[in-house]
Write a protein that binds this DNA or RNA. Structure first.
Lengths: 294, 294
DNA sequence: CCGAGCCATAAGTAATGCTTATCGCTCGAC
DNA sequence: GTCGAGCGATAAGCATTACTTATGGCTCGG
């Protein structure tokens, strides 16, 4: 059963004149006649009274007409819904990333995007890079914002990895601390200092641990936290020193590393075998075009 | 867009495996692949992620799946509804006739029919034969029960006329009347008798008038009524004599005409260009098979 | 009674859609 | 790491479908 046939049947039912209906449908009269005949055969009943001059719906035709009309409306609505996805008028995006990405970066990028495409809904998930990669591979996330390098297990060809921003970490110092007012710090400065860090497992923490080990510095870990805001609050309260992304320090009071840039490479990861939806394509472009302020 | 394609799309979406889905659908894998490709082209979006091994719905596919499923359900419901018409499980019949037909005949015939086909709904219209014929020609009634001969204007080829029962009129006599207890009457008996008759325009009345004129009998018309029940009541109350169908006199107290049978030919009339619905075909058969009791 | 209008049918052709055969790719096992 | 199995996409050939033009039969109105 061809949907075009159903549409033609509806037009014919409305006009009651096969020749005229065929003309309106850019068909010849025998073609429409054949379509109706086929439709009637597939239903097993006559849909029209053949009355020499003109056609009139039978009871069966009247009955079927309603169903066919509703079904076609539904299909048209489906096409419209699919089209609205393509026009970015609707759709959902599931994005995941670490604390820095979801807290400091995504809000600034999603804001303008949402203004331009208010129909797109976001689902944001904050988790360690490893978890994000797994979620992307499982198809739960459309896009992941993670720190390179990836865990070896996930680095297979199943992921599409696109380098993104280079994020620099800065050292937050409490107001009364001797290091305060300096522009840069050196690893030796951290000896025996109280340190507030992300909980282990996060990419930022791993980066920090690696540098501490390389420079043989052993600060006193006084606290492990999960969010950037709590770290800055703790530092401000004088509990200790803390590392956060430079992006999370808009006032610029954090100290950059004077030995070697303390940076990490952020990247976008997707499943290679997933074709991007229009919404994802557009948002990905927004991500890649974004530059940190200043 | 072919409905079979949509159905196949749904099966494929469910299995996620093209080869297996094609097998279940009695298709080869390339055929199904082509169908999906065509469907995607007509929608302008990819419905599946091609992931080397197996398929997974895209967001567009997930969206469209719901609409397509609902639309197919609707079409199936339409087919079912049309089928139920054919199986006499549903449908409507619009029947019209004169007072005798609708009051005395139809109830007895519709009763068993309705027991056998409780899904069929009747619309009964009582009106003079001329009005019934017009309603049949206008398509408002599926079937008319009328007295022959038809008005000349309606006797064209547009009507299909099927002779039915021969109905005999009998004379009802009040209990205290001298004619009471007789089995037959003669037209001369009616001289100066008070007569209760159907209102003019009805077929029964025309028949009566013709016979009265032929026999040059002039009874005193004391009342013109529209219903059989009111005539029998009036006669019983002693107002006068009255003619009704023998079918409306189950007790057999009415007097038959002793001069010449006072009968009329009833007939079924339909529009010739209307094909009969299953319900009409079945009911028509019930009508033609019916015999008056006794 | 004739002509116009309308639907059904027939014959021929163009296009659609299926089948078989094969390729490229991915994944899992050895 | 390599090989084999499984899966989907593609190509070529063919059968079927569905359209076109031409025509017949029928009804209705002048």
């Amino acid at each position: 059963m061809e949907t075009d046939n159903l549409r033609n049947f509806l037009v014919l039912a409305q006009t009651g004149n096969m020749t005229r209906a065929a003309g309106r449908l850019n068909l010849t009269q025998p073609a429409l006649s054949g379509q109706v005949k086929k439709l009637e055969q597939s239903l097993g009943v006559a849909l029209f009274h053949r009355q020499g001059r003109g056609l009139a719906l039978t009871q069966a035709g009247e009955t079927f007409r309603r169903y066919a009309g509703d079904a076609l409306d539904l299909l048209a609505a489906g096409q419209e819904a699919v089209g609205s996805l393509g026009r970015l008028a609707s759709g959902t995006l599931a994005i995941g990333g670490g604390a820095t990405s979801t807290t400091c970066l995504l809000p600034a990028i999603i804001g303008p995007f949402h203004s331009r495409h208010p129909g797109i809904r976001f689902t944001i998930r904050e988790a360690p890079s490893r978890t994000i990669v797994e979620a992307v591979l499982a198809g739960d996330l459309d896009l992941g914002l993670v720190t390179l390098p990836l865990p070896a297990a996930a680095a297979g060809t199943r992921l599409l990895v696109e380098p993104w921003l280079v994020d620099e970490l800065v050292l937050l110092v409490p107001p009364a601390h001797p290091l305060r007012r300096r522009r840069r710090f050196h690893w030796r400065d951290l000896h025996n200092q109280p340190l507030i860090a992300f909980e282990s497992g996060s990419a930022v923490r791993q980066l920090l641990d690696r540098h501490l080990a390389e420079h043989a510095v052993a600060p006193a870990l006084v606290m492990e936290l999960r969010s950037i805001a709590s770290i800055t609050s703790m530092v401000a309260a004088g509990i200790g020193l803390g590392f956060v992304s430079r992006l999370a320090d808009p006032s610029g009071q954090g100290l950059r590393c004077g030995d070697r840039p303390l940076t990490r490479q952020l990247a976008l990861v997707e499943r290679r075998d997933r074709s991007r939806s229009s919404a994802l394509e557009a948002f990905r472009a927004s991500l890649l075009a974004w530059k940190p302020p200043g």
